[in-house]
């Protein structure tokens, strides 16, 4: 079955600050954007790593949190009606004979576009995989870093590791299905929402699940089928019988599939020119933390500048031969109409 591809001018990979501002700059030039992000929300690192922490170096905003900055950028881009696609990782990018691009995501979405803007920051956020010896032998069969289908965990002996919201949410959601449920955390304090922690403690008190304090040091089992995890606690080592292990240690950034798109790369960064911020492939741009050029500073404000210049060249590629008139939002009634303020 082939899904119908979504037709658009531009696909932006990454809904962080630079990707969001690119929507605005491209929108001023009448270019329509779809934005894809692997996270379940916009904002990229600002929203995932430091939503509540202040940023002090955004021009004209002496202090702004990562979440506030994200919210303001979304508001600024809103007049251009971009489409956002979350929880999607772009897996494939191919150029067609006519120079346009086909893209697809791990969630089965397909896009057909004329310009691609890679604003992927430090790469894709992916679950951290704890360096337990031999864990890769069990990945995908007994060890999982996310829950795709709850039903897959019915009647399993489940061990969940971690103390944050992901760990506690899945303890509570999977416990009714599981044959047995054990939560393991390195300390008897949890950073998850207090309500979830209370629910978990009630389940422990009523004997419906186990809670252990300690850290996994090894795994036991054969042919990818887990039988137990070795745990080191305050009172020494012990085994926890389980056939499903779900470790939740947060997210880390990996370059991911971008590495396979045939672009020149230097130390996991994409070299670009400083006039158009184009990659080695015409029509594919890279802006923000993921690009590199002489003098590059990984600052949000640099990414904003890059977005503006990139948009000029994107316009020329999409509208060959058309003259691009440079205009200011303060004085151009044309731009003000697009922004919905005229």
């Amino acid at each position: 079955m082939t899904e119908q591809a979504i037709e658009t001018d531009v696909v932006i990979v990454g809904a962080g600050p630079c990707g969001l501002f690119a929507v605005f700059e491209l929108g001023l030039l009448d270019l329509k954007c779809h934005v894809i992000d692997i996270l379940d929300k916009p904002g990229g690192q600002c929203a995932e790593l430091y939503p509540e922490k202040p940023i002090y170096d955004i021009p004209a905003l002496p202090i702004v949190t990562g979440q506030e900055l994200t919210d303001r950028l979304l508001e600024q881009a809103a007049p251009f009606n971009p489409a956002y696609h979350y929880n999607q990782m772009v897996t494939g990018l191919n150029r067609k004979d006519d120079g346009t691009f086909e893209m697809e995501t791990d969630g089965g979405l397909k896009f057909h576009c004329k310009v691609v803007v890679i604003a992927a920051g430090g790469g894709s956020f992916q679950p951290k995989k704890p360096p337990i010896p031999g864990i890769e032998d069990f990945e995908g069969t007994s060890v999982f870093y996310s829950v795709k289908r709850m039903e897959d965990f019915r009647n399993k002996d489940i061990l969940i590791v971690g103390g944050g919201d992901s760990a506690l949410d899945w303890v509570i959601n999977l416990q009714p299905l599981a044959k047995s449920m054990t939560l393991l955390h390195r300390r008897d304090e949890f950073r998850a929402a207090p309500d979830s922690v209370n629910k978990m403690r009630e389940l422990v008190a009523s004997g419906k699940m186990n809670l252990h304090i300690g850290q996994v040091t090894g795994l036991k089992g054969d042919n990818g089928v887990l039988s137990a995890a070795t745990v080191k606690g305050k009172e020494g080592e012990f085994n926890v019988a389980c056939n499903s292990l779900l470790p939740f240690f947060g997210l880390t950034m990996k370059l991911g599939p971008v590495a396979d798109w045939g672009l020149n790369l230097e130390e996991n960064l994409i070299p670009v020119d400083t006039e158009k911020f184009s990659t080695s492939e015409r029509g594919i741009f890279a802006i923000g933390d993921i690009n590199h050029y002489p003098g590059k500073l990984k600052l949000i404000l640099s990414g904003f500048h890059e977005a503006a210049l990139m948009a000029q060249e994107a316009f020329r590629i999409i509208n060959p031969g058309e003259r691009l008139l440079f205009q200011y939002t303060t004085s151009s009634s044309n731009l003000q109409k697009k922004l919905g303020v005229a």
Binding site: G164, H185, R186, Q215, F249
Partner: peptide
């Protein structure tokens, strides 16, 4: 810092 160490390994 204690909260964030939950995301480290072999603490």
């Amino acid at each position: 810092e204690e909260d964030m160490l939950d995301f480290a390994f072999d603490v």
